[in-house]
């Protein structure tokens, strides 16, 4: 064997090298890494701060100002790093880091679920073609034409209260989320199906499953990674939006969207604008970080995500 093949740098490694060189992608990577560490360690951080997200501290509120927190910056102190929530006096730091964890867990689980389903169905449709492809394409059209947010709100009425809302949220976001990915992967896979190596694999009697998972999938890992990374900020935003509307994560589980919704009246009256600042920054940082990283990954893999039909 000549050494040129063994010595060549794999496309994946080249791409990673490009990500490292891209300044905004680096910012995104650092932001994402920091947020994930904070989210993963959130129970620990909360313990470290000596607080929890559920205990009321009525003594820290000012009844004269409608129970807004005492002190400046929304009651920031050595005990309460981000101050306390108005009306209840719960520790805002705990609420924000645990809320961040809720957001990221939901977004990442949904991304994994939709990526697996969307990739497999997209590749299969491209490879098998025929009626399977036709049915899948119609199904995708159907899902795209659907008023997703309206339906997600409406679902609240039919799912019994027994079903945990977090699971429902993951389920609903997944049901609508895989379609976009499947369509893009299908388009990418179609250009591969006619290539010689697929033909070769088929001619030696490889099963369809083998061709899909061992021949097509490795060649599509770049686009899959790009689409998945770009999808995460969308899910973070969707979860926050549903919680903001009051149909997402139910109390008392901390959620950034709900905290922001709760903060509206405090911001408008000027009684405690800091109640919005901390959850707002956390949410913005999460979406921005994943967007920057996603853009960087896309540029690095040089994937053209044309919205083709």
């Amino acid at each position: 064997m000549s050494s040129s093949v063994a010595g060549a740098v794999s496309p994946t490694r080249q791409a990673l090298r490009r990500v490292r060189r891209d300044r905004s992608a680096r910012v995104g990577l650092v932001l994402v890494a920091a947020l994930i560490v904070v989210a993963a360690a959130s129970p620990l951080l909360v313990k470290l701060s000596g607080q929890d997200a559920y205990t009321y501290h009525i003594d820290l509120l000012d009844p004269a100002r409608g129970n807004a927190p005492l002190g400046s910056f929304g009651g920031v102190s050595a005990e309460h790093w981000f101050g306390v929530e108005p009306l209840t006096g719960r520790d805002l730091f705990s609420i924000v880091v645990l809320g961040l964890r809720t957001s990221l867990v939901i977004a990442i689980v949904v991304t994994v679920v939709t990526t697996v389903i969307g990739t497999l169905l997209g590749i299969t449709a491209a490879y098998v073609g025929g009626w399977f492809d036709a049915v899948l394409s119609r199904l995708l059209d159907f899902l795209f034409g659907f008023p997703q947010l309206v339906f997600m709100i409406a679902l609240g009425i039919i799912v019994p209260a027994k079903v945990p809302r977090t699971l429902l949220l993951i389920g609903v976001l997944s049901v609508f989320g895989w379609a976009g990915l499947a369509r893009l992967i299908r388009a990418q896979a179609r250009s591969l199906v006619t290539r010689e190596f697929v033909e070769a694999a088929r001619s030696v009697g490889s099963s369809g499953w083998w061709v899909i998972t061992r021949e097509l999938l490795p060649n599509l890992l770049g686009p899959v990674l790009v689409i998945a990374t770009l999808a995460i900020p969308g899910y973070i935003g969707a979860e926050a939006a549903l919680s903001f509307l009051g149909v997402g994560v139910p109390p008392p589980t901390p959620s950034l969207g709900r905290s922001i919704s709760d903060s509206i009246v405090w911001v408008y009256t000027g009684a405690d604008p800091w109640f919005m600042v901390f959850p707002g920054i956390a949410l913005f940082a999460a979406v921005l970080g994943f967007t920057l990283l996603g853009d960087g990954v896309r540029d690095a893999f040089d994937v053209r995500l044309r919205r083709t039909r």
Binding site: G237, F244, V267, V287, T291
Partner: peptide, 21 residues
């Protein structure tokens, strides 16, 4: 980039705060 990264309700609240209040 800012538009893509800001949830709509957050930007709306900030706009009300800045221009309205």
């Amino acid at each position: 980039l800012i538009g893509v990264s800001t949830p709509s309700f957050l930007l709306g609240l900030l706009a009300i705060l800045a221009f309205g209040f």
